[in-house]
Design a protein around this nucleic acid. Structure first.
Lengths: 129, 129
DNA sequence: GTACTAGATAATAACGATTCTAAACTGATA
DNA sequence: TATCAGTTTAGAATCGTTATTATCTAGTAC
């Protein structure tokens, strides 16, 4: 597909299937979620391909790795600035697009060069209540 | 030690050593950091004891598990409300005690019951620049 | 269109953090 | 001081992720 040409990565059918799965995906899938979804179309799909592709997309700034779930990495194809609201029970994740102004005075940063921030809200989702 | 009696967990010498190591510790250690430190005093110390004790302390609300480092869990004996500033290179962590007011309007929370939030600032520390 | 090649895929092994198991041990209570 | 529920230990098992290697193929050049 031409729409992925701008990524400047070699476009294989497997990669296109992964990209299609990720496009507009708001579920913040794990590698396993991606693997299972793409395996339906490519039964020989291996985990290595999922991880390789995610690595390539991360390097191109086209996918964000989330550390929200301590048991496994999750991935977000939306690289715009936003935050997350996580259900402490089922680990479902909702995007929060508010722009919060968080100023840290120099004397608190202990000589760090600040790059950015990320806010994790937590709560219990509708289904888990 | 009497000072740990209030935890209401059985106090073994190994647990006291772990508690002593954690007391006032601002390094946000991993299980391995704790294991290595306590092993000096108790050469037969096993990882299971470290994880068991951390689990007990988590349940008592006396230790916080941090998901900041995607390759391993890190632990914070300071359970007061605070945030973290993380070096993207060496993964060192500094506490930020500012109290930020983060209001989320009802219509953004998609039916979640909000519990709290945690802010992760990231940057490059003095030593890694 | 055909050949070439750097880079991708797939199967599997390796790895590291964490959890589990089962037997021996011990702190806290009576 | 005897008891026992809970703890420690060593090691095995598990699980997510990374590495390896042989095979394959997308993209380029001819």
């Amino acid at each position: 597909m031409e729409e992925y040409r701008h990524l400047n990565i070699k476009l294989t059918p497997q990669r296109i299937a992964i990209l299609d799965y990720l496009k507009g995906n708001k579920s913040h899938p794990s590698a396993e979620d991606i693997f299972k979804a793409v395996k339906k179309e490519f039964p020989t799909m291996s985990f290595a391909t999922v991880y390789n592709t995610l690595e390539a997309l991360k390097n191109k700034g086209n996918v964000q790795e989330l550390k929200i779930d301590s048991s496994k990495k999750r991935y977000d194809p939306d690289c715009s600035t936003h935050h997350h609201l996580i259900c402490t029970k089922c680990k479902s994740i909702v995007d929060i697009f508010n722009d919060f102004k968080l100023n840290l005075s120099e004397d608190l940063t202990e000589g760090f060069d600040l790059i950015g921030n990320s806010i994790e809200f937590f709560g219990v989702c509708h289904d888990c209540k």
